[in-house]
Simulated assay, not measured.
Amino acid sequence: MHDVMSVFALCVVVLFVKMLAISCYQGFYRISRMTFKNAEDAGFVGRQASPEELPQVSRAAQAWANDLENIPLFFVLGALCLVFNPPAALTVGLMVVFTAARVAHTLCFLARWQPWRTIAYAVAIVCLLGLAAMVTMGAVRHL
């Protein structure tokens, strides 16, 4: 159980750092190009607001939005797995593969690599389904 909890905690930290990196990526492009869509941000550096976001910033925002559709589900399912104590090796495997797939998805999204982005997305979804199945079995077992 402690091994699973440790792996889950490390996966959460990796996913946090990955999402933070997306924010830094957006900030890097805005600052390096001195291009800001919000008037108060542009005015802070003595510029006029840009009518639209930089393409890199928009792309990163899409990656962020996709993360918000998947990563919170991992947090919940992973925590529930800790409650129901499913097979450790399978749980750890699904958690690690999910995390690696989400990192790969972001890299592929930003680099515009298809079909790798879709493959990474699908792998992560399969992992979520596996975690959901283990939670379901654990819940039924404890009825």
Score class of each variant (00 low, 15 high):
Val76Glu: 11
Phe8Trp: 07
Ala49Val: 06
Ser50Lys: 06
Val12Met: 14
Thr99Met: 12
Asn66Gly: 07
Val7Phe: 07
Gly78Ile: 09
Pro86Tyr: 02
Ala9Asn: 03
Cys81Gln: 01
Met1Gly: 08
Val7Arg: 05
Val140Lys: 09
Gln114Leu: 13
Val83Met: 09
Val123Gly: 02
Leu131Trp: 11
Glu52Asp: 13
Val83Gly: 00
Val103Ser: 08
Leu110Ser: 01
Cys81Met: 09
Glu69Gly: 04
Gln114Lys: 03
Ser50Arg: 05
Gln26Tyr: 06
Met1Thr: 11
Leu143Ile: 11
Arg112Pro: 00
Gly43Cys: 08
Ala89Asn: 10
Leu82Lys: 02
Phe8Arg: 05
Phe74Gln: 06
Gly46Thr: 11
Gln48Tyr: 03
Glu69Leu: 12
Gln56Val: 02
His105Lys: 01
Phe74Gly: 00
Leu20Asp: 02
Gln56Ile: 09
Leu131Ser: 04
Trp64Arg: 10
Ala101Thr: 02
Pro87Gln: 12
Asp67Phe: 05
Ala42Gly: 00
Pro51Asn: 06
Tyr29Gln: 03
Ala21Pro: 00
Ser58Pro: 03
Thr106Gln: 01
Val57Met: 03
Lys37Gln: 14
Gln114Gly: 05
Arg33Lys: 14
Asp67Trp: 04
Val7Thr: 15
Cys24Asp: 05
Ala139Gln: 09
Leu77Ser: 06
Leu10Tyr: 12
Asp41Trp: 11
Phe16Thr: 14
Cys108Ala: 15
Ala124Glu: 03
Lys18Tyr: 06
Glu52Ser: 11
Pro115Met: 03
Val45Gly: 01
Arg59Met: 04
Ile22Ala: 13
Val45Met: 07
Phe8Asn: 02
Phe36Trp: 13
Pro55His: 05
Leu77Thr: 11
Val83His: 05
Phe44Lys: 13
